[in-house]
Write a protein that binds this DNA or RNA. Structure first.
Length: 486
DNA sequence: TTTTGAGTTGTTCGA
DNA sequence: GTCGAACAACTCAAA
């Protein structure tokens, strides 16, 4: 009598319901991670994500060892791998924590049915969300499409379930199934090794996730409201990749934040804590949307956008990817992304607005780039957020909201610290010019050692013109929809 | 059933 | 420099 504990995006031992349930049976547990590229089609993890996965699995493997067991690594289609493991080990139960991507829910349902047909006990649990996507509903039983009422309804369900500690021991089987070597999976880049910046910036794994939340609740969370929008200041939690891989759960985050607020301020939810938790709720909302609208990654929620005329602009796209658009805040963001696999949230909105509204490039193309380069790339958050910026999503930004990169720069990076860090060729420009080098006088540029068009690009678009163009293009689809529906 | 109030993150223009 | 209005209706959610 053995239980297979199938790890997926819950790469932790604490607050892991499937693991706890498996351990509670008092029988040997086989912990297995399946690299299931075969199952997830076009949404196989991108490069940065694979780098993180390597580190996370390596940390997890040590943690499982410390509890007297081993992490078994397998590749292939999950059902095939699990079938073989069942035959090989004689296991009678398979436990896992749920995923919510459309391809994953379909596959998991199939697996559950197949296992039950064979008399295998198959159970799934919630390790990823504060509430299941189907638990939060309007009074009429429909899913929410607007964030604020969703957030109210989520809170009305009460405090999240208390997170549980990690099991002290995980009983090992007498014989372990064969495991791949992690190295063989080739998750790390070799030639060229582009991961230097990632190594310098991040430490994957459950332990690191807890240091991260610990540091955040020690201070920054209480200034979150003021500082979260300043990319030059470390005012955010930087938990996104840990959260994505399930190294920490939203329940653990909720508890950590609320109890540190209680200790420090005597109040459960000061403004900053509430604002931070609402960001966690945005993640929940994205999962809610992805679950109820499975076409979210590829199809606009507002269908008048299905005939929006996106621009084919390979040069603009490549300038955007490389961080050479000539708009310092955009370039800084894109370079931070390339170097570290992460970008500050405020800057994500700026660069996304620039791609979609200034260059009129399809949000899905931006989404693909993020998917490949972000260590926190998450199908739910990424899809929902790109649709939000493009204006075609649920509860989306109104079409006339076009970010002005210069204005956003001076508002949120007033002394240019962020730009100076990521676009060092502009470092010597005075604060007043740092977000708009093309407005500098020749002497000012010379003093800063800048030759526009040579060592820093001239702007690839005239923003004022691009704004007008975007507004016109967006009006077209309104007119188009009008014709169709009349 | 109908009505009502509200909806993450902005910018520009003109007074 | 600061402030309020306009930008555009529409859909959502609850009363």
């Amino acid at each position: 009598m053995t239980t297979i504990f199938w790890l997926r995006r819950d790469l932790r031992l604490s607050d892991n319901p499937a693991l706890n349930a498996a351990v509670a049976l008092g029988r040997p547990v086989i912990a297995v991670y399946i690299l299931d590229d075969a199952d997830n089609g076009e949404w196989s993890p991108g490069g940065a994500s694979r780098w993180w996965l390597h580190g996370s699995l390596s940390a997890l493997s040590s943690a499982i060892k410390a509890r007297g067991n081993r992490l078994i690594l397998k590749t292939g289609s999950a059902l095939t791998v699990i079938d073989k493991l069942l035959t090989e080990t004689g296991a009678t139960s398979v436990y896992w924590n749920r995923r919510y991507e459309p391809w994953a829910t379909k596959r998991d349902e199939k697996i559950k049915t197949a296992l039950k047909d064979k008399g295998i006990e198959a159970r799934s649990f919630n390790a990823t969300l504060l509430r299941e996507p189907w638990e939060v509903n309007t009074q009429n039983g429909y899913p929410y499409k607007v964030f604020t009422p969703f957030w109210r309804a989520l809170r009305a369900l009460g405090e999240p379930i208390q997170p549980e500690p990690a099991p002290i021991r995980i009983q090992a089987p007498s014989i372990f199934p064969q495991s791949d070597k992690l190295k063989v999976w080739g998750l790390l880049p070799t030639a060229p090794d582009w991961a230097g910046g990632l190594r310098d910036t991040w430490k994957p794994g459950e332990e690191a996730a807890h240091s991260c939340i610990g540091e955040f609740t020690d201070g920054a969370v209480f200034d979150y409201q003021d500082k979260r929008n300043l990319p030059g200041v470390s005012g955010t939690s930087r938990l996104s990749p840990h959260l994505h891989f399930g190294e920490i759960s939203p329940r653990q985050i909720w508890k950590a934040v609320v109890s540190s607020a209680l200790a420090r301020t005597g109040s459960l939810m000061p403004g900053s804590v509430e604002t931070y938790l609402s960001e966690i709720a945005w993640r929940e909302f994205s999962y809610h949307l992805l679950f109820h609208f499975p076409e979210l990654p590829s199809k606009p929620i507002r269908n008048e956008f299905s005939h929006f005329q996106w621009q084919d602009d390979p040069e603009g796209l490549s300038a955007w990817k490389r961080g050479s658009t000539g708009f310092p805040i955009v370039d800084a963001g894109m370079r931070q992304l390339w170097a570290t696999g992460w970008m500050h949230n405020r800057v994500r909105m700026i660069v996304a607005s620039f791609l979609v509204k200034d260059l009129l490039i399809d949000w899905r193309i931006g989404g693909e780039w993020f998917w490949d380069t972000l260590v926190d790339a998450d199908l739910a958050s990424n899809s929902a957020s790109w649709q939000w910026v493009a204006g075609c999503g649920a509860d989306a930004a109104p079409y006339f909201r076009v970010f002005n990169p210069t204005l956003q720069g001076s508002k949120f990076d007033p002394n240019g610290a962020y730009v100076r860090e990521w676009v060092p060729e502009l470092a010597k420009l005075p604060d007043k010019l740092i977000h708009a080098p093309w407005t500098a006088k020749p002497i000012e540029l010379a003093d800063a050692g800048i030759e526009l068009g040579l060592n820093y690009p001239s702007p690839i678009v005239d923003h004022a013109m691009a704004r007008v163009r975007a507004l016109e293009r967006y009006k077209e689809i309104k007119a188009g929809r009008f014709l169709v529906t009349k």
